[in-house]
Design a protein around this nucleic acid. Sequence first.
RNA 1: GCGGGUGUAGCUCAACUGGAUAGAGCAUCAGACUUCGGAUCUGAGGGCUGAGGGUUCGAAUCCUUCCACCCGCGCCA
Length: 584
Amino acid sequence: MNIFEKAIYDLTADILKTEYKYDVKNSLELSSLIEYPPSPDLGDYALPCFSFSKTLHLSPDVIASELESKLQKHLLNKSPFTNIKARGPYLNFTVSSSSFAEEILPDIFNGNYFKRPSNIKRERVMIEFSQPNTHKGFHVGHLRNVALGDSLCRIFLYNGYDVIGANYIGDIGSHIAKCLWYLKKHNTQDPPENHRGEWLGEMYTNAVSKLEASNGQEKINFKAELSQLLREIDEKDHEIYQDWETTREWSMEDFREIYEWLDVKFDHFFYESEVDEEGRKIVIEGEKNGIFKKSEGAIGVDLDEEGLGFFMLLKSDGNTLYSTKDLALARKKFDKFEVERSIYVVGSEQTLHFKQVFATLKRMGYKQAEKCFHLPYALVVLPEGKMSSRQGNVILFSQLRKEIVESIQSIHLAEHRKNWSSKELEETSQKIAVAAIKYGMLNQDSNKNIVFSMDEWLVSEGDTGTYLVYAYVRIRSIGRKIPLKVSPDVDYSLLSHPNEKKLLRQMLDFNKTVFNAAELFRPSLLARMLYEFSKDFSRTYNTCSVMHAETEKLKASRLLLFHCVAETLQQGLNLLGISPPERM
RNA sequence: GCGGGUGUAGCUCAACUGGAUAGAGCAUCAGACUUCGGAUCUGAGGGCUGAGGGUUCGAAUCCUUCCACCCGCGCCA
């Protein structure tokens, strides 16, 4: 609740109590009612009066208009409100833009505003995301997960949480056996110099088609070979183990380079290979203790009570499953990292799986299981359907990066080629490309598929990441052109244009938006707010010039305003994982 | 079959979780500025919110019955 909402609460709660004998139980009751009128012409805050109607035996319209007349006297002496007006069942409050400005601009100018939320110490939360498989290509679908997880880490951190960003590399399992099997027995190519992880992805796809094309005795032989290969990797003392280590590192090299380009960092890397053995022990022990049971040669847990069916934990050939390793991983998170809250950013097709994992952990006696949360997100699909590494019909990350960087450099940065160093050209195109990619992944709600079309991702107009960083660059450009020093010592009452007021209002709500983005696991809320904010800036840019301001005083006020807009935009973009360039 | 998700303008998406006239971008058409950076701004047209029923002061939002598409449902991850 900001000071304006607080003022509305104080005024109305008092009148409701003294004049209507309506006892407002707590501040939440009123403050959660306070909302925004659909148009700024109506006011800045609104109190809907429906809920008082029943107890007061009056129509909401009457209540609103009675409150209006009773509150008029508060418009005088030092009130932040310039107007209190009933309209139908709503009581609308208008705040002067100078009150907004005085409240928010000094705080942003000195940097305190962005530190305030993180002063509150909250619990330790681990956010697990990305989880790429080695020996497979990194495609645009993986990018959505990375953008989402990374942004959530930043947003949680901003809000004061003790955040551990974790990756969980899928470096073991049957897909790897297939890849290595093909590499050993069928491949004739030499690995390339660069992007060898990506090349392994091709080998994996080849393996899948080879296996699918086989039948009869050949198929049986292939399966036996795969099973043996998997066992040999497990046993660690065969030649294939060396191959596994080498090729795994090829993939990791690719991943590290991608994360660095994307400006994504992890506090910890888990590997499936490190929890594999432990998982097996947990399951076997659980079977002895009677928590788990044998069924058709395999081990699992009966979750019928929870309505989750039978959950497989160990294959009948003794090899581990995804679920086996998830149990060991969770235990590690609880015991070693003392995680209080555990968030898994994983595709929505695994919703049932995680319900089963969490239920199993609970059966095993882990109280933390209640604070495990699967954050599902929908797929990135192609117009013709789902992407699949198995089939090889994927848009690789490297392809998107190449096309988007080339498009930015050839269409927009060409004009700077003579004056800028190649380093700046490179860095700027990288920053714009990252903005375009991450914003594109984040501005949409995570439960909706993204239909990927390369042409759309090369667009740099309208509701795009490019638009946001362009707005940022233009503001900073003003700062460079005006020979004035930004100062908070200005006349705030001069910022009275409706467009200027909108900007002030958005800045005032910034922290609340970031808070909601964390609590609802929705960076999209922040992304949308920043787009509106940038749009309002562009409008203000066209209507409220700094350079051509009528007076020097107005010039100084607007300079401060725009400076604060830039600071807020930069903060917000950073929380989306975007670091805007200073010029472009 | 059961469970989950989605369905809103020609297309891609919003709608502060039940509130005022359902909003943006793209596309289409018409405009602005001898530009604090045109990767911009202003305006116009475009809607039975998949369909029916219900709940209440009030529904895109909640309940219900259908329809369409997507994803899960024991040895993949």
